[in-house]
Simulated assay, not measured.
Amino acid sequence: MLSRNQQLPFGNSIRRVTLYSLKEHGEANDIVVYCSDGQSVEAFAKRFFHTIGAESFWFVGVDCSTEHRNAEYVIGRDGPIFERHESFFINDVMDWATKVIGTQPSRERSAVFGYSCGGAFAASMGIRHPDLFGSIFAFSIAGRPITNFDAPLESALSNIAFYFRAGSREPKAMRSYMKRLEKWLRSADVQIDFKTLSGGHEFAMWSAGLNESIELAYEIDA
């Protein structure tokens, strides 16, 4: 597995972004998965890159803030902090990754992944930017980022697929919240695949769920 990292300017500081792949240069049909909690993405990528068809995938891990992780990931906690990180993620990070990979991926071949509060961020990116991401892998959504379930949704969301995964041993309140979010999204004819997997709030469940979800989203063989 190859990795390349870059310290990108982020306000008055810098933020590490790391790219993982099995090859040096991108090709037209490659798929890019943009990930929150970049410090953990190497472990997810290592497990995924053992699957058949993995050579067509790129993982982009964006390190989280050590001070404002929840505020950056969960919409409603702190508007300016969330929006600054959102802009960094969809502009600076995606521009850098496109230059390094060497190809411009389409919306259908761009995905976003996150777990826990990072799952809240992934879901928000799918809802707020339906023009950028075709597949949303949002696991164990924490922080209750969306509460206005009566708000109308954009019709453009009908072209996106959301993959929700939760652990059987996670709090019932978390799974209940995700069910409410699922119902709200389905009101706009959004494609959703929601499964409860054996496990808790833990890497093993998220990793297995990510591999399975990617295989479903892009029709590759395990």
Rank of each mutant, 00 (worst) to 15 (best):
F48T: 04
S124C: 15
K23R: 09
T66R: 03
R16L: 11
P105D: 06
A43M: 12
D78M: 04
Q39E: 15
G76L: 00
I75Y: 13
T66F: 01
E83T: 15
S65C: 03
I31G: 05
G11N: 06
S40I: 15
Q6N: 15
R84N: 13
K23F: 06
H50D: 13
E83S: 14
H50V: 13
G114P: 06
G11L: 05
A45I: 02
C117V: 05
I127Q: 07
E27W: 08
S40W: 10
E67Q: 12
M94V: 02
W58G: 03
C117I: 00
P130A: 02
A111P: 04
W58I: 03
V41G: 04
F113V: 02
V33R: 08
G61R: 02
I14D: 12
K46E: 14
I90Q: 07
D30T: 00
F133A: 01
I52V: 12
P105E: 05
R47D: 14
V33W: 09
V112T: 11
T98I: 06
G11S: 04
R128H: 12
I52N: 15
L132E: 10
E72Y: 00
R47V: 14
A71G: 08
N29W: 05
N70T: 11
I75L: 12
S87R: 14
E72Q: 04
F57I: 01
Y115Q: 14
E55I: 12
F49K: 10
D78G: 05
P80Q: 02
S21G: 08
I101M: 08
P9N: 13
G11H: 00
F44S: 06
H68N: 14
R109W: 07
T66M: 09
A54S: 09
S36G: 10
F10L: 09
H85C: 00
V62N: 04
L19N: 09
F88T: 00
F89L: 07
V33H: 09
G76N: 01
S135T: 14
E83Q: 15
G38I: 01
S116T: 06
F48S: 01
R47P: 12
F139K: 08
F44H: 13
F88L: 03
A123N: 07
R107A: 08
A71M: 12
V41I: 15
N12F: 15
V60Y: 03
H50R: 15
D92H: 06
V112L: 11
S40G: 13
A71K: 06
T103N: 07
G61F: 01
F82E: 01
